[in-house]
Nucleic acid binder design. Structure first.
Lengths: 233, 233
DNA sequence: AAGTGGTCTAGACCACGCC
DNA sequence: GCGTGGTCTAGACCACTTC
């Protein structure tokens, strides 16, 4: 039994991955402990730990103290979505970016958002509607509610040069949030904005962010017909 | 100048995060090197490295050798999507899962998939259509092309007990893939499957996976009306 | 109680990429 | 060239979890 002498954590990860893929270790199996693997590979335990931590992040193995490391039975597909600010998404496609502020008013929270956006009595909310264009074609329609108590500067910002989207990314840090993706049927207003027929299927996303326990903003983005959101596995 | 004496990497990450959020370090600023921070916090450089690596993964700072670490100007929103096998997505909602294999035949690749799915001449492809149900209501309609040369056992699997989706997750490892999400308008066939009207907006996803340079499978999943895909930020 | 992964240290060498 | 982050080591202690 010769030692494998892999000493970089990526090499070790590939070797472990190979054993999983080749069924040397079956789904559900307990694999050797870090100390044993370190001895086998002739490296420090830290290095094995790094490799296993990486495999655990992608869901291929599950790790628990004392219980050890097991090969996952149904490894989930994991994908990381990177949602850039809209300006960058447009310019990354080689298109020209501009935006128009269509609405900007202090408004009460619509009842259907009560669950996602829990506010103290008397909180003031700013509602904004923005259309983002790529090469002068409508690209994303953005409807946003922003908590003025949590983001004071928002009320006096102009949004001519910098959109509400960009302003918040640069000025309002968040500690958490959730996001949801779905399909909607264009109503008459949205259809007119996108120069399409009512009933067209549109891709949409909603995002709520908060800082600590304080809600920051809730936004719904409706994408132009035919939009596809891509990611790598 | 007293040392901060934070010695766990999560504590250090929170302290650094705080300085970024409070604008002690402005967007675009170069922050001190790992060695300096280690001295300030009274810990090993490795520990600071771990904290900074974590911040870099979420996109809040960008790191380059020799150039140092900078606070990101437009920190992107990053979200990790975990796409479980369909059975688990259904049972996690507390619903009963079942599936029906509707079509299963060897078929040529439709021309519109030629780009995503580059095959050697003469490769045999299996086409399958499966409806997945949650509590006996149609949940996901799955159309799949699978490379029989890359996944030999697929041809003889029954898919009565285990769906094609689940079978592939358990039996066909992949080294890479891409995924795309979009909205579609239900055609007459799909509308009938989901007991809705033609033209209904539906959420859909396509996934292509491969192992090394060999394509494994291409699948399109069309979700029941009203489906929302959720994730945390 | 004991075994496993999680983390920290102090030191070292290396690779990348600005200058 | 040389400064910075990236990684590796050998050892230690700790935290969690199962037994």
């Amino acid at each position: 039994m010769t030692a494998k002498e892999a000493n970089s954590w990526t090499q070790i990860r590939e070797e472990l991955l190979d054993r999983i893929n080749k069924r040397v270790w079956q789904p559900g199996d307990l694999i050797p402990g870090e100390a044993d693997l370190a001895e086998e590979f002739g490296c420090a335990r830290t290095t094995v730990n790094r490799a296993l931590r990486d495999l655990a992040e992608t869901g291929l193995v599950t790790r628990r103290r004392k219980a050890g490391t097991r090969v996952a039975v149904n490894p989930p597909h994991k994908a990381t979505l990177t949602i850039p600010i809209i300006r960058e998404e447009v310019t990354a496609r080689g298109a020209h970016y501009r935006h128009t502020l269509m609405t900007r008013e202090v408004r009460d929270l619509p009842p259907h958002l009560g669950g996602a956006f829990q506010l103290v009595q008397g909180t003031r909310l700013m509602f904004t509607e923005t259309m983002h264009y790529a090469d002068d074609r409508p690209f994303i329609f953005e409807e946003r509610y922003t908590n003025l108590d949590a983001v004071p500067g928002f009320e006096s910002a102009s949004f001519e040069d910098v959109s509400a989207n960009e302003w918040l990314v640069q000025n309002a840090p968040y500690s958490g949030g959730d996001m949801v993706f779905f399909a909607v049927s264009a109503d008459e207003t949205i259809a007119r904005y996108f120069e399409t027929g009512p009933g067209t299927a549109l891709f949409a996303a909603e995002r709520t962010t908060w800082y600590g326990s304080s809600p920051i903003t809730h936004v719904r983005m409706t994408y132009a017909p035919g939009y596809r959101m891509r990611t790598q596995l």
